[in-house]
């Protein structure tokens, strides 16, 4: 099944991106080649040495919205710009992307020739008598294939993110694997395990009750509940490694592995610290109000997941994976 989900994510992503780009092209969402008028509040006028105007481009929210046919701009646009004069007398404009840039222009810049700024041609400029303001008529550079470019960028970015995440695990993995090894040699894990045998026997009937995998899984779950994800992941991986030692068919997930994984993805956590922090910073009167509701939600997820795993493992198509049947390839699912 993972095969299908994986290819669906990629295929749907690319098809939707193409569809969005075709639609943008047909509707001219980015108003390629269409001029618009705006005022410029001039801060620096050209001098004989420097043939540029610098200032803020000012456009009302209504004008911006109606030009692009959107409703997202809520406040007046004030965008720093530089207008420069080429030797041929042609005027060009550059808008560096910054915090003041409206979202639409930020999106457009992502697909622009230079991702840091949007450029365009100034068709006309009329400077007011006091040299303080000017009216300009601008055509921005054509923006095309926004989503396709975003998809390309995402694929490359995420590939390196994956490596960054994995490499970031090395240190904490080493720390916890070392500690766990000491605990194992000292026989401490067996003590932890014995206390919870009644529970683990039911959840993981295939695993001998004093196997190190049980201890690692218990510690992983405890760390998860306390929100110590830095400790939980190494312990979880250690548990997987131990579970894999009991795996008759390496490369195929065992029932216990899947049950364990589902308990992990259920994400039962006593204090959802991240969500609380975001609520607090958003100015909530009671950031902790979601503790109870989150525990309820996660408990639903965990219980449903474990039941689903236990029921699904009885299906013939999943049992078949562990039956010796030469000549028949196990289906990847």
């Amino acid at each position: 099944m993972l095969n299908y989900i994986w290819i669906s994510l990629i295929a749907i992503g690319i098809l939707v991106a193409v569809g969005n780009d075709v639609r943008d092209e047909a509707q001219n969402t980015y108003r390629n080649g269409v001029p618009f008028e705006a005022s410029i509040v001039i801060q620096k006028s050209p001098t004989p040495l420097r043939q540029t105007w610098e200032g803020d481009l000012v456009l009302t929210a209504e004008a911006f919205n109606s030009f692009y046919g959107i409703t997202s701009a809520t406040s007046e646009v004030r965008q720093p710009v530089v207008i420069s004069v080429a030797p041929s007398g042609e005027l060009s404009i550059a808008m560096p992307i910054g915090p003041a840039t409206p979202d639409r222009w930020k999106d457009m810049a992502k697909a622009a020739a230079n991702r840091e700024k949007l450029t365009g041609v100034v068709q006309s400029i009329a400077v007011a008598g006091d040299q303080q303001t000017a009216r300009v008529r601008i055509v921005l550079e054509p923006i095309r294939f926004v989503k396709m470019k975003a998809v390309t960028q995402a694929a490359l970015d995420y590939a390196s993110t994956a490596v960054t995440i994995a490499l970031g695990l090395i240190g904490i993995m080493a720390l916890w694997l070392g500690v766990m090894k000491v605990a194992e040699e000292a026989g401490l894990l067996r003590i932890v395990t014995r206390m919870l045998t009644p529970v683990t026997k039911r959840l993981f009937p295939d695993i001998p009750t004093d196997h190190p995998a049980i201890a690692a899984m218990i510690m992983n779950m405890a760390a998860n509940m306390l929100g110590l994800s830095n400790a939980a992941t190494p312990m979880g991986l250690k548990a997987m490694e131990e579970l894999n030692k009991l795996n008759p068919k390496v490369g195929t997930a065992t029932n216990s592995m899947i049950t364990f994984l589902v308990i992990n993805t259920g994400g039962l956590i006593l204090i959802p610290a991240t969500a609380i922090a975001v609520r607090a910073s958003a100015g909530s009167a009671n950031p902790g109000i979601i503790i109870g509701t989150s525990i309820f939600g996660a408990a639903c997820a965990t219980v449903a997941g474990v039941i689903a795993a236990k029921l699904l493992q009885r299906l013939p198509r999943y049992r078949r994976d562990f039956e010796p049947e030469p000549g028949k390839e196990a289906s990847n699912g």
């Binding site: 099944m1 795996n247 592995m257 899947i258 994984l261 997820a301 699904l312 493992q313």
Partner: peptide
Amino acid sequence: IYFGSVQVKNTRHAVPAGLIADVFGM
């Protein structure tokens, strides 16, 4: 990451069970 660490490629019913858990969580 969990299946990757033990080189599991055939995930069997892990995805459906995980997604059922997610749906019920939501």
